[in-house]
Simulated assay, not measured.
Amino acid sequence: MQQITEAISNPKVKRAIELAIGPLLLFALWWIAFKGQLVNKDLLPSPVDTLRDTAASIAAGKMTGDFVHTIARVGYSTLIAVIAGVPIGIVLGAKAAIYRSVEFLVDFFRSTPATALFPLFLLLFGLGDFAKIAVAAFAAWLVIVFNVAYGVMNARQTRILAARSMGASSLRIFKDVIFYETLPQTFVGLRTAVSLALVVIIVAEMFIGATDGIGHRIIDAQISYSLTDMYGSILIAGAMGYGLNLMLLMIERSFIHWSGK
């Protein structure tokens, strides 16, 4: 008993237990709903069958192609959003008057559901991959612009004033003070943008003429009434989003160790 207590008190073991609680709770709720027939049994398969069939599909490589296509689209859209969004966010945040002049446009489109823009992007770019990537990139771009601009505008004035009092130029202040001050807020925007891009890409794969991707797999399984495949694909999509967010959090904690100090 003492050995078990010591093992549980180990920080790594304790952290592993904490991380396992969420998935186990989801499995337990799903099992209760299935066994208790709280949901029509024709609409909710067993979690055991779903996990078994999903594992078999992954092992056979049936999901690999769809996973790769979806993650690639999310990666392209996020990269476009970062390249186009960070410089514009810096420019807008550097001058409050400039930001206020375009604040309505940024907030208006940021508040507009990205899915409502599908018809517009279809007219502009057609049914190919570029339309899906473009609409996801646009949605992610708005989030990044807003967060970068907010980070620049709210950089700690005490550090900026200290740099100015030591005779630092505006370029030096931006490079050595403002840039690092805005990184935490930039990463907040990046994590939000990646999650939003994934949502938009999955929905686009469902309804905008896709022939591959996790979204297409979900809707295809729903049409063919392959429930374990449908629920398994949904779990894969959720795991994809969780994994991307976790990866960005790890990068943030590694490189922005001064955040909040």
Rank of each mutant, 00 (worst) to 15 (best):
E181F: 03
K62D: 13
L24K: 00
H69E: 14
P11Q: 04
M153C: 02
A7H: 02
A81G: 14
R172D: 02
L244G: 09
R217K: 10
I83H: 06
R110Q: 12
P11A: 02
D129W: 10
E205R: 06
G260Q: 06
I98D: 07
G89Q: 05
T192M: 15
M230R: 01
L142P: 12
G85M: 05
I71S: 13
K41N: 12
I173Q: 07
I234C: 07
I32F: 12
D107A: 13
N147A: 08
A59M: 14
R159K: 06
G126E: 04
E103D: 15
R100Q: 15
K261V: 13
G215E: 01
S233I: 11
S224M: 15
V102G: 11
G209L: 10
F207H: 01
D42E: 12
I173H: 00
Y99F: 14
A72C: 09
V106F: 02
K62V: 08
I223G: 02
R110I: 08
I90K: 03
A56C: 05
L123Q: 08
T54K: 03
N245K: 11
S233A: 15
K14I: 00
K261M: 09
Y76W: 08
H257C: 00
I214N: 10
A33K: 00
E103C: 07
E181R: 02
A20M: 03
L246T: 13
L44V: 11
L198N: 05
A72W: 12
V200L: 12
A139C: 11
L19I: 00
D49S: 11
I236F: 09
G243H: 02
I219G: 02
A55H: 01
